[in-house]
């Protein structure tokens, strides 16, 4: 997002897709929404609230070491402001050796744990369906987590309705959702290249490094963890800021245990660790 308005959309198409979303939600009846506090899940939870009513919706957040605290605070603030029924539960993907090994289908193991637990919540509380916030843009991406969702019969109403990220941002803005221009915010493990084992210490290093950069005004960026190296991917505006404050940033990140601090020449790009994925041996299922 550039700080201006969201991307222009075809209004007729948007109205048709929003109607399709409503039809899907009504078909589900009562829903548990997998809720991270990101653009998609906040919009989905709000749409479900508007279309089904508060008694038919429960937004559930899975809390673990890989879930950034800043994202959790956004999630909590949104449900409070919007009046969406909400539940936090603990998830235990960090107890799964297959997840910790960090294969390129790592998300499959995490989402399997998440949907196991959300499915149990839905059954115990009498909700008919479990929903995730996948959108139409996710369909063509490398998303092993989608396989876990399918295996658990989790529905993806935004994807089914054909809503793209840009369209979700437009609808979110019209609803006054604070997340409409929020950058994508995947879990902390996504900062570790496949094959580098996931540890609590590494996740904390990444989280703390990103907190430090956020405090310096950076918004669109990632800190990628390469063992003893921190590689910063930053958007165009952020890149200039990193260069201007390079010495201080290098010192701060070094203090977290990184021996070298690098600024990627090509800048921030979503899914950068999926580049050259064919070179990575796939582990286990999915």
């Amino acid at each position: 997002m550039d700080g201006g308005g969201p991307t222009p959309v075809d209004e007729a198409v948007l109205a048709r897709k929003r109607a399709a979303l409503q039809a899907i939600l009504c078909e589900c009846g009562t829903v548990v929404v997998g809720y991270s506090g990101g653009v998609d899940s906040v919009f989905l939870a709000k749409a479900a609230l508007d279309d089904l009513g508060a008694g038919a919706v429960l937004a559930v957040t899975g809390r673990s070491e890989s879930y950034p605290e800043v994202q959790r605070q956004t999630a909590l603030e949104c449900v409070r402001r919007l009046g969406i029924p909400h539940l936090e539960i603990d998830t235990y993907e960090m107890g799964d050796a297959a997840y910790l090994a960090n294969p390129s289908n790592r998300c499959y193991f995490c989402k399997t744990e998440l949907w196991d637990r959300l499915g149990a919540v839905a059954r115990e509380r009498g909700f008919h369906a479990v929903l995730d916030g996948s959108n139409a843009d996710d369909a063509g991406d490398w998303r092993p987590g989608l396989r876990a969702a399918r295996e658990h019969r989790v529905r993806s109403p935004l994807l089914e309705a054909g809503l793209t990220k840009a369209e979700i941002r437009v609808l979110s803005r019209r609803l006054g959702l604070p997340t409409w221009d929020q950058p994508a915010a995947p879990c902390l493990s996504s900062r570790l290249p496949y094959g580098l084992p996931v540890t609590v210490e590494r996740l904390r290093q990444v989280e703390r490094a990103e907190e430090l950069l956020r405090a310096r005004g950076l918004r669109e960026f990632r800190v990628r963890h390469h063992g003893d190296v921190a590689r910063i991917e930053a958007g165009p505006v952020e890149t200039a800021r990193v260069l201007h404050e390079a010495g201080a940033i290098a010192r701060e990140l070094s203090a977290l245990g990184f021996q070298r601090v690098l600024l990627d020449a090509e800048g921030y790009r979503r899914g950068a660790l999926n580049e050259g994925l064919g070179l990575v041996r796939l582990g286990g299922a999915a």
Binding site: R231, R251, A265
Partner: peptide, 28 residues
């Protein structure tokens, strides 16, 4: 030189690197 490095990244990466990055010096 960062902007020029970005332009040269595909050529350098073709040598077998996955990323091209500028070292940030703590002393700067």
């Amino acid at each position: 030189h960062l902007a020029r490095l970005a332009e040269l990244a595909p050529e350098v990466k073709a040598l077998g690197f996955r990323y091209l990055a500028l070292e940030l010096q703590a002393g700067e």
